[in-house]
C-alpha cells in the first residue's frame, strides 16, 4: 500500500477550510475539468457584474456621456467600428459591452434573489409538510400539484400582471425588481418543497430525530437544527440548476416587455431592444447580450449537473 496520499500541499489552514479541502465534493470538483471551467466562467461573470461600474468602459446610464451621434456603431473590428466601443453601440449610442456588464448585474441579482426566495419558501413549506404530515401536508402538496400543471413562465406572467395592476403604471418601475423576484420565486418553489418534503419524510423517521424528540425539543428546533442540515444536499443542486432557469425566466419576462424597463436594462431587455434592429443589419445589439445569456445559463447548468452527480453517491 504505497503511494497512498494524493499530492496534498499541506498548507496549514483553519478547520473549516481543511474539511472542505478533504471533502469528497472538493475531490470530485478537482477531477472534473468541465466543472472547473464552468465555475471559472461563472466566477468571471459574477465578478464582472459586481464590479461593472469599475470595469465598464462607459456608464450607459449617464445621459451626459452618451451621444446619439455614436448610435448604431458596429463592433470595433467591423467596417465603421469605433475603438471606443468594442462591441459596438445601440440605438441610443450606448456602449453594448457596458450595457451587457450592467445588464448582467440586474439579471444575476434577480436570478439570485428569486432563487433564494423560492428556496426559503420551498424549504419552509416542505419542512412543514413533511414533518407535520396530515392535512397540512395534503393542503401544501395539492397546491404544489396544481401549480405544477401550469408552466412556470405562465405563473410568473400572471403574478407579474396582478402586481402591475395593483401598483399602477407610475410606481411600477420602483417595485419592478421586487415584483420580478416574487413572481419568479413563487413559480419555482414547488421543486424545493417537494424535494425537501421527500427528504424530511426519510430523515424524520431516523433515530437521531427520535432522540431529539425524546429530550423534549420542539418541532421547529428539530426541523431547523437536525433535519434541515441533512436535507440541504439536493436543495443545493436544485438551487444551482434553478439559478440558470431563473435568469432565463427573467430574460423571457423582460423580452416580453413585462420585466425591467429599458432605462435599467437586464440581458433580456437588451435582447428585446436589439431584436427590433436585427433585420436592419445591426445584429450586434442583440447577438452579444444573447451570447452572454447563453453562456451564463449553460455554465450555471453544467455546474448544477456536476453538483448533482457529485452529491449522488449512486452515480459516483
Amino acid at each position: 500500500m504505497s503511494d497512498v496520499t494524493s499530492q496534498e500541499t499541506n498548507r496549514s489552514a483553519p478547520g473549516a477550510f481543511r474539511r472542505m479541502r478533504d471533502s469528497d465534493l472538493w475531490y470530485s470538483f478537482t477531477r472534473s475539468p468541465l466543472a472547473m471551467l464552468s465555475a471559472l466562467v461563472v466566477l468571471i461573470f459574477v465578478l464582472a457584474a459586481l464590479f461593472a461600474p469599475l470595469i465598464a468602459p462607459h456608464d450607459p446610464f449617464d445621459p451626459g456621456s452618451i451621444s446619439i451621434l455614436d448610435s448604431f456603431l458596429p463592433p470595433a473590428w467591423e467596417d465603421g467600428g469605433d475603438a471606443r466601443f468594442l462591441l459596438g453601440t445601440d440605438d441610443q449610442g450606448r456602449d453594448v459591452l457596458s450595457t451587457i456588464l450592467f445588464g448582467m448585474r440586474i439579471s444575476l441579482a434577480v436570478g439570485f434573489a428569486s432563487v433564494v426566495f423560492a428556496m426559503l419558501l420551498g424549504i419552509t413549506l416542505g419542512l412543514v409538510a413533511g414533518y407535520f404530515g396530515g392535512w397540512v401536508d395534503s393542503v401544501i402538496m395539492r397546491i404544489a400539484d396544481v401549480q405544477l400543471t401550469f408552466p412556470a413562465i405562465l405563473i410568473a406572467l400572471l403574478i407579474n400582471g396582478v402586481a402591475r395592476a395593483m401598483a399602477g403604471p407610475q410606481s411600477y418601475d420602483k417595485v419592478v425588481f421586487v415584483v420580478l423576484v416574487l413572481s419568479i420565486g413563487l413559480s419555482f418553489w414547488v421543486q424545493y418543497g417537494r424535494t425537501v418534503r421527500g427528504s424530511v419524510l426519510v430523515e424524520a423517521n431516523k433515530e437521531y430525530v427520535l432522540a431529539a424528540r425524546l429530550i423534549g425539543l420542539g418541532p421547529w428546533t428539530i426541523m431547523f437544527k437536525h433535519v434541515l442540515p441533512n436535507v440541504l444536499g439536493p436543495v443545493l443542486v436544485i438551487a444551482t440548476i434553478n439559478l440558470a432557469l431563473a435568469i432565463i425566466t427573467e430574460a423571457t419576462l423582460s423580452f416580453l416587455g413585462v420585466g425591467v424597463p429599458p432605462t435599467q436594462p437586464s440581458l433580456g431587455t437588451l435582447i428585446r431592444i436589439g431584436n427590433d434592429f436585427l433585420f436592419s443589419g445591426e445584429w450586434w445589439i442583440t447577438i452579444f447580450p444573447g451570447i452572454t445569456l447563453a453562456i451564463l445559463a449553460l455554465t450555471v447548468n453544467l455546474l448544477g449537473d456536476w453538483l448533482r452527480d457529485a452529491l449522488n453517491p449512486k452515480l459516483r
Partner: peptide
C-alpha cells in the same frame, strides 16, 4: 480509492 488502494 482517492485515499489510496485498499486491500479488501
Amino acid at each position: 480509492t482517492r485515499r489510496g488502494v485498499l486491500t479488501a
